[in-house]
Design a protein around this nucleic acid. Sequence first.
DNA 1: CAACATTATACGATTTATCGTATAAAATCA
DNA 2: TGATTTTATACGATAAATCGTATAATGTTG
Lengths: 79, 79
Amino acid sequence: MTIRNNKDFGESVRLERLKRNMRQVDIARKASVRQALISELENGATSARLDTVLKVLAALDMDLSIVPRRKAEFDPTEY
Amino acid sequence: MTIRNNKDFGESVRLERLKRNMRQVDIARKASVRQALISELENGATSARLDTVLKVLAALDMDLSIVPRRKAEFDPTEY
DNA sequence: CAACATTATACGATTTATCGTATAAAATCA
DNA sequence: TGATTTTATACGATAAATCGTATAATGTTG
């Protein structure tokens, strides 16, 4: 899943959290942040710090990786 | 390249920048930040905001992606 | 070595993320 | 529907990122 802005990140967090049947407060506790922050991040309301991004991803058992840029995938909602 | 902390990010930025024969100031201009900030980030001196991370990676033609966590690779420097 | 180029550091000012806490709003369920 | 759970929002306080600018330190090259 490629992340190009805060909204992408928020959507990914929400998606992965729901896949795991977790509540915001569960992620928050694992990542040692507030439930309110998870809400804000999922809604793309703020640009998290890298360490916060990493804590949240760790709570989801996910990693961040940097990769050569690829063209954007075809997005049917654009048509 | 997996990023698990600020230092990993900084090292990756420096590595990719040098691969491209670019100076810190070149990345800084492309990303609309200060040369001093690139230096700080490469040295892991600060936890950049996600939007800053994305601007810098864009200047390197790279993307951020989130992936399922894998066990750490074998690291011979630990032995 | 001497000039030049690049990177690192400093410092005060400003902006922003995050906190703690509380509550409103929305969703779920019995 | 009513109770309960979950998520969103508010607000002031604190900590931290980023800025502009300047300069020190280091590296490179002739």
